[in-house]
Amino acid sequence: MAATPSAEGDTLAYAALNELKDRLDWDLDPDELRIAAGALEDASDLAATYGRDWPEASLPRLVRTLVLKAAARYMRNPNGYTQSRAGDETLAWSDAHGRDAGSVYFTREEIRLLEELAGRKRGITSVAVSAWGTKPQRAEASGLVPVDYSPAAPFPLFGDEGPW
């Protein structure tokens, strides 16, 4: 089962709570179960944002894996600590994840994987731009090129009707 209803029944998570519990090495108490369910929903929402909103029947297996990884990462370190010391009570946070530290997040590589699974390609592309209310003119005759920037007649590209 790919998407499972939450405890409230109104939102869907891309992974089940039991799958997350299997990835953690301790038994969750009732409060941690509630937090874990929220972490799964947050990770699923992020997966839909970075990728797309996958229907339950076509959810890629890797999406479920990434959601479980993000939720387990949060459950193991909900405050985003990078260093902890018991003697002098030293705690440290890192700016490595910026505003995402202490929350459910995907790494850059995980985001790239979600984008690829959704069919999104990064890169440069060209887009035709025209002024509002203008239409490019269509050349009906062979050998004529439409002129987009003015209401002029099509421009002749070739001088004769050769077999191009």
Rank of each mutant, 00 (worst) to 15 (best):
V104T: 10
A43Q: 02
L68C: 03
G162M: 08
R112W: 03
V127W: 00
L91P: 01
D22T: 07
D53W: 01
E115A: 06
G38T: 08
L17T: 03
D95A: 15
G87W: 12
L17D: 03
A70C: 06
V147S: 11
Y81W: 15
G38A: 10
S126P: 00
G119V: 09
W164K: 09
G102H: 09
A47Y: 02
R112M: 02
A92F: 00
E140R: 14
L91G: 07
E116G: 09
A96Q: 10
D45N: 10
F155L: 08
S103D: 10
Q137K: 13
D25E: 11
S6F: 03
E8I: 00
L144K: 06
I35H: 11
R76L: 14
G133L: 14
E140A: 15
R64E: 04
N77S: 12
T125V: 09
K69S: 12
A86R: 10
R138L: 11
V145I: 13
R73Q: 11
E89A: 13
Y81A: 13
P146D: 04
S84W: 09
G162Q: 11
R61I: 07
A101G: 15
V129Y: 08
G133P: 05
G123T: 09
L17H: 07
D160R: 12
G80S: 15
E161L: 10
A70T: 04
T107A: 11
A2M: 05
P146F: 01
T11D: 13
L114V: 04
I124S: 14
L62Y: 00
T49Q: 14
P156C: 06
D53P: 00
G51R: 07
W164C: 04
Q83M: 03
D45V: 01
G119F: 10
R64M: 00
G133S: 14
L12R: 03
P151C: 02
A152S: 15
R99A: 15
E140Y: 07
V63T: 13
E116L: 14
R99Q: 09
A96R: 12
A39I: 04
D95C: 08
P5I: 08
A92Y: 00
A86W: 02
V104G: 07
P151H: 13
D42L: 04
A16C: 08
P154A: 07
E32C: 09
E56D: 12
A153H: 01
L33V: 10
F155V: 00
N77C: 13
R61Y: 02
D10Q: 02
E110K: 06
T134I: 08
D53Y: 02
A13F: 05
